[in-house]
Amino acid sequence: MEWALFLIFALVAAVAAAGMVLQRSPIYSALCLILALFAQGGLYVLLHAELIAAVHIFVYAGAIMVLFLFVIMLLDLRPESHPPVQFNRVGVLAGFVLAGALLVELALGVGPRIILGPRGPYDLETLRMVGNTQAVGRVLFGEYLIPFELTSVILLAAMVGAMVLAKRRLE
């Protein structure tokens, strides 16, 4: 059952991601990416990260992709400004070589430590008892409190930067 769900979500995510790169028009690319992100949210649920799944859908599908669609429609690109997609071999090769390097690195560097290394305190039974959201909240507002507070600075800087960059120059 879990395998079936995993395969469905993984297939949808992979095909939609490939579609995003292959589509000629940016609006179809954005819609494909939204589909991929929803499938990824399903995978998070399969991994028992329910809070992450919900936040992922809110932030990505709800905020980021809506912003993308707004900008695409705001720019109102003519169809002739979308040339057919041409793939140079170097780019495709670079992508898969990089991903292969990532996998090898994970397998050689991280893999053995994952298999042999110590486990944290949050196994499934604990999470089921405490609740995923509560457990993540404890870690986020305990151990990671200062980094969490610092992210607000990033958001403030991004907000000010976006306004300064995007507004029309005043005479």
Partner: peptide, 15 residues
């Protein structure tokens, strides 16, 4: 799956 998605992303940026 993660590596595949990453590869598709790199291909998108590069091409």
């Amino acid at each position: 799956l993660s590596a595949f998605l990453f590869a598709v992303g790199v291909v998108g940026v590069a091409t």
